[in-house]
Design a protein around this nucleic acid. Sequence first.
DNA 1: GAAATTACGTCAGCCATGTTGACATATTTT
DNA 2: AAAATATGTCAACATGGCTGACGTAATTTC
Lengths: 179, 179
Amino acid sequence: MADVISRADATQGRPSGDSGRLIAEPLSVDERPEITFVELLFFAYRDFTSDPDAVLAAYGFGRAHHRVVHFVNRHPGIRVADLLDILNITKQSLGRVLKQLVDGGFIEQVQGPQDRRQRLLYPTETGRALGLRLMAPQERRIADALEALSPEERQGAERFLRRVIDSDQRDMVERLIGS
Amino acid sequence: MADVISRADATQGRPSGDSGRLIAEPLSVDERPEITFVELLFFAYRDFTSDPDAVLAAYGFGRAHHRVVHFVNRHPGIRVADLLDILNITKQSLGRVLKQLVDGGFIEQVQGPQDRRQRLLYPTETGRALGLRLMAPQERRIADALEALSPEERQGAERFLRRVIDSDQRDMVERLIGS
DNA sequence: GAAATTACGTCAGCCATGTTGACATATTTT
DNA sequence: AAAATATGTCAACATGGCTGACGTAATTTC
């Protein structure tokens, strides 16, 4: 358990099975250096998203609720269609969690003043508080990670993440985050 | 659609509802600079994981299969318990997808030579090919993202991701990836 | 002013993938 | 011989994606 991968077993040549159909050679970082980042992204995101889970569980919510609460707090008055665009999910998926958030008093829908078909989404005070509470551990984690980095290294982290995003989505992200 | 957030609606002061229970003030990056990284991680990971989905769909597989195939390729002969540890999922969840991968001829289980209770996992040639095919677009994406960065910026990206990982998991990750 | 389009909601049902808890089996360790 | 370990399995359940179809109100277009 402590070792996670016991090298003795993991690199022990040909398995005793039968033919040559099995492969004992590991994919190596030496040959494919990008694997490092592939796996770091996996582990970093896994831990990063685990932060809010405990908080969410107390409310009976999941990660989907978190995402909705987050972006409504970031963009009060956002239209449903725009939220769908950001989250890349379907109306039905959003509808379920949104209903729970509205019922629970975290988000309210306001009829659009110009276009009355729209239901603009606003956080309530409770919803804002929840959003902050969910983000707090993530902010701390990010701040701790950045702390040890030089300014140019920080810039590298940010530029890297921006360029991992689909090129045709970067403008939208830039507009959402600011750049 | 093009604008995603229409500023006109999004920042239009107090919603016309009723009391002061609704909040129109956006959470801002100026006050909370870590939000930039919180959201960049979200979008980057979203797009990063979308790469292999098309390939997976052709096999009727999901992301869970991808993760298993990846780590078995990276560590041929890995024990089931170690894989569970890496993926942070339960035996039952792994069991389902592993069975499909074994039935489909992508992974084989070999009885441990020292400890015959163990079922060491190896990729078949087909499984190795699938692993490479799934990782290819991700490698390209990473390589493209790194290309524009200075050596120190690249180091910043890597150090940042390493430090986002739970501190008590960093040793394990280091052992898995090498550092 | 009628017709088309848009924004949103909803119903029904399906699927993938995570969970818990309990239990079985073979093997190794004590 | 007994205890601990590695793995598998069964049943049941929850979350959160999805599709497709349909309805309604409001707006835009012709």
